[in-house]
């Protein structure tokens, strides 16, 4: 709370000093714009659709990353084939992929695709390492006591990898959100937060640019908070 008051005061002072809405609008002006935006149905539609697109990409990336982690940890051939490819995807700049994706698919799909592309390597790397680090002594115990595949996965593998897996998902959700919004700015789907950010910049509506940025930040915090809470609850549950 103290930090918020401090930074808002600093922002107000800076805005007062600059005295140009175009360069740095005051917090009050941004808040007014935000209130105005909240009163418009298009605002809520854009926020909901951006969330839907990016969360769809996040879910797809989680499934793909999980699947690839299991396959590359289990089969050497899959590891040889996929590990270098995933590492390349991870190090390639987001902008390169956005431009390529624009050539390959419809505008509305690009943000989801980008979110997926950001999430997959993070989930893959963390889960693959966690699977490979599962205690071999516990696996031997499971073998001796004839757990079988399903019980070994349920009682040994899942609890062993749950913590790093949850941490990777918490990191990935933030990255998916940021890359998804960046993709929206470049590919301009009809109703999207990124599209509104772009037009605010084009029409030099700086208070609107700030207001939409605040929306992105607030939604990001909410998403990460909600996700962390969900994962904490899941981890508390006994296996």
């Amino acid at each position: 709370m103290l930090a918020a008051i401090f930074w808002l005061a600093l922002w107000s002072a800076a805005a007062l000093y600059v005295s140009q809405e175009l360069i740095l609008p005051s917090p009050i002006s941004v808040f007014r714009t935000l209130l105005y935006l909240c009163g418009r149905p298009e605002f809520w539609k854009a926020a909901a659709l951006s969330l839907l697109r990016i969360f769809g990409g996040f879910a797809a990336g989680t499934v793909l990353g999980t699947l690839l982690a299991v396959l590359t940890a289990r089969f050497d051939l899959m590891d040889t084939l996929f590990s270098p490819l995933i590492r390349i995807v991870r190090t390639t700049p987001v902008a390169s992929f956005i431009i390529l994706a624009l050539l390959w698919m419809g505008h509305a799909l690009v943000p989801a695709f980008m979110a997926m592309l950001m999430v997959t390597p993070i989930v893959w790397e963390s889960l693959r390492a966690a699977i490979l680090a599962v205690d071999p002594e516990l696996l031997e115990m499971a073998f001796i006591y004839r757990f079988g595949a399903v019980k070994t996965i349920k009682l040994v593998y899942i609890p062993s990898v749950l913590s790093p897996y949850a941490a990777s998902l918490a990191t990935a959700v933030g990255l998916a959100w940021k890359s998804g919004i960046a993709a929206e700015v470049l590919c301009l789907p009809r109703l999207a937060i990124g599209t509104n950010l772009y037009y605010s910049k084009i029409y030099l509506e700086t208070p609107s640019l700030f207001a939409w940025t605040i929306v992105v930040i607030v939604l990001s915090f909410m998403l990460e908070g909600l996700f962390s809470r969900l994962l904490r609850k899941r981890r508390k549950k006994r296996w």
Binding site: L138, I144, L155, V156, W239
Partner: peptide, 12 residues
């Protein structure tokens, strides 16, 4: 087989 180490599942 009772192992030299306890090898209990810590989450159970």
């Amino acid at each position: 087989f009772m192992f030299q180490e306890d090898r209990l599942l810590p989450w159970l």
